[in-house]
Amino acid sequence: MRKNSRLSPYPIIAAALFAVVLMSSGCTPKINHTKGVYMLVDTSGTYTEELNKAKAIINYLLGTLAPGDTMAVARIDTGSFSEKDIVAKVTFDQRPSVANTQKRAFQKQVDGFVSSVAGSSHTDISGGLLQAVEYLNEAGSGQKYVLIFSDLKEELARGHIRDVPFQLEGFHIVALNVTKLRDDIRDPKNYMQRVDQWRDKTESGGGSWRVINDLERLDNMFSL
């Protein structure tokens, strides 16, 4: 009898632990852990020479993203607010082996795009950003990242209106490889004004803004 009375707490402790686990899992709000990454690639003018860097970034992202995450690559051209400008898009399967196959297919699509891309005459960054917001909202990702691989100099074609306020709550906008233009070298204020303008647009829309020019520090991209 003595042994029974001594050992009886084990089932009680086990039941209590089980209850705690159930309660903790039940009480915790359901969090969406998936990431959605939409990369806008500038194809205007001389920036097409930088596309190999964009390819390296995309490869890095493919290696980083996990099953369940969403990724899309779209070009920035004269009118970027269009699904036609999406070069490749995918939501990775839950199974890692299938996700790896999808990543390989995605990589091939991007390779094909980089090798055959033609430069555009205008740079509609705002349209691309609006398209990115729309796409990621539809994808329903938990963390939303829009990567803008561009010099951030917007040149809209005649008749294009982009004075729509951005709705960027929950979005992280990351500007990558923001190259300095000739005018910027002469007067750095131009570069600063350009970056600040986009920062203001993003932050006024409720999003967060970062600039990563050193591509060796891409591992900090998702540290927000």
Partner: peptide, 8 residues
């Protein structure tokens, strides 16, 4: 599945 979660 690699993307499903139980709690955290």
């Amino acid at each position: 599945g690699g993307a499903s979660y139980i709690g955290a």
